[in-house]
Design a binder for these strands. Structure first.
Lengths: 144, 144
DNA sequence: AAAAATTCCTACCGTTTTGATAGAAATTTT
DNA sequence: AAAATTTCTATCAAAACGGTAGGAATTTTT
């Protein structure tokens, strides 16, 4: 029942791009340094995000990556689904036909309930929400 | 983000014991036949359930297994936790000290939210609930 | 024009987990 | 004594995980 490092790193990566947005492209190298993740591994992950159109890239010196849309346009669910393939705890939760017992199976209903619960969380948190949480953590506002 | 076959089979196994309860011990062989799961694999799974005290066993002819408590005493969560080890989507959701970024990390909060959502589902479904659902599916009551 | 900085692409690889299978010993009933 | 079971231990192939490596392509800087 674990989320792989690909999914976790992808979320940190996207959040890093959102938090460190300046209008300039951000290199893998700098993300890797901030997030303490191998450059080569991040490269693989960001390639998937790029192919899905979640980020845009520019090669060469001063090149790098940038979110292609506003942080509010990305949900955690979008990012995790892209990396994990699906958020179903078992195949039959998403595709009843993957098991011919599904019609009589009550455990299948449990898996569907789990999947819905997970989706209800991740589809209702955006990168923007996370940026806000980050700022509140990093720079608490003291009302005097 | 998948639940392993061990967890899934364990739930079907426990439910099978609950549904087919007659007061007599039930053999692995008969469970395997009904559930269409390898006897040898079920054996390994039920061994874990036995060691945890979730089922009791008797060897020899007419031997087999039986739930050690009433179906209402088992939650889906208990069974899944036993087989999967934990329901946390990542280690830091359960054990903050497993990552020294946890205190500043906002993705960690996401994992905690996911875990809580999953637990809220599985800790509130008992085997008894599933038996009821099963009976409603298998024998619909037509009110005329 | 050359050098430097970067993404892009493909392949490979060791370790762990998953999902079993196999065989024989121990126990209990028939 | 035989049959039916659980119990225990070992083994194993395949897939997934979590990377690493190297070089080609592109763009900017010098």
């Amino acid at each position: 029942m674990k989320i792989s490092t690909k999914g976790r790193y992808a979320l940190r990566l996207m959040l890093d791009l959102a938090i460190n947005f300046t209008g300039e492209y951000i290199s893998i190298k700098s993300i890797a340094a901030r997030q303490d993740i191998s450059e080569k591994y991040l490269e693989q992950i960001i390639t998937q995000l790029n192919r899905a159109g979640y980020v845009k890239s520019v090669r060469g010196a001063q090149g790098g990556y940038m979110l292609s849309k506003a942080p509010s346009e990305y949900t955690v669910g979008m990012i995790l689904r892209l990396m994990e393939g699906s958020l179903a705890p078992v195949n039959c939760a998403e595709d009843e036909e993957s098991c011919d017992r599904a019609s009589r199976c009550v455990t299948q209903e449990v898996w569907v309930q789990i999947q819905k619960a997970v989706e209800d969380v991740v589809d209702n948190i955006t990168l923007e929400n996370l940026v806000t949480r980050y700022q509140e953590k990093a720079e608490p506002v003291y009302i005097i």
